[in-house]
Amino acid sequence: MAVDKAMNVLIVDDYNTMLRIIKNLLKQIGFNNVDEATDGSMALDMTKHKNYGLIISDWNMEPMTGIDFLKELRGSSSPNKDAPFIMITAESKTENVIEAKKSGVSNYIVKPFDAATLKSKMASVIGEF
């Protein structure tokens, strides 16, 4: 099934720089419907009101971290509870990756990353495009 590039994508990061980078990279590969949140609780609230075909979230955020957002989302009755979820983090510890996987993460990207990495990880969770 072809990937609908018009899908809504939610990106979550507490650094405005990263939000801009990810949004630009998504635009370059044809995804223009991008919403932004600056922490897990804001993102969780947004997932209650809109359908997302993909969620890309940073781990280290306050007050709600990316992993807590993922756990809350997966355990909720939100229409996005099973949405593909890519976690991004600068700290790539084995236990973090395991915790994320057990919590239902679809894929995991370590910072810094490039457009090619983002595209390949996206393709692995939503299909080739």
Binding site: Y15, T17, L25, A90, K111
Partner: peptide, 10 residues
Amino acid sequence: IFEACSFQDI
């Protein structure tokens, strides 16, 4: 250049 700007976050 965009990719390199992630230095700020890290």
